[in-house]
């Protein structure tokens, strides 16, 4: 089961990388992540929310108890 759990996380990571590669090859069809975020982060709530998630990753792994 441990291997299956790790495989699930790895699959998400690989899917993200593969999707970005596809988007950069054909940006007319699928916008790359940077272009999507350019649009999404035009609102304050999205900008604050996304940066809060980024910050929380650092807090969680560097400061708070992770286990």
């Amino acid at each position: 089961m441990r291997e299956i759990t790790i495989f699930g996380f790895a699959l998400c990571l690989v899917a993200a990388i593969a999707f970005e590669v596809i988007a950069r090859r054909d940006p007319d069809r699928i916008a790359p992540l940077g272009d999507l975020l350019d649009r999404v982060m035009a609102t304050r709530s999205a900008r604050v929310g996304i940066l809060l998630f980024w910050w929380w990753v650092g807090w969680h792994f560097l400061v708070g108890p992770t286990v």
């Binding site: 940006p27 699928i30 916008a31 272009d35 999507l36 649009r39």
Partner: peptide, 11 residues
């Protein structure tokens, strides 16, 4: 742009 929509759905 539809590319933005597709990207948003996928991500």
């Amino acid at each position: 742009p539809s590319g933005i929509s597709r990207s948003a759905i996928a991500w």
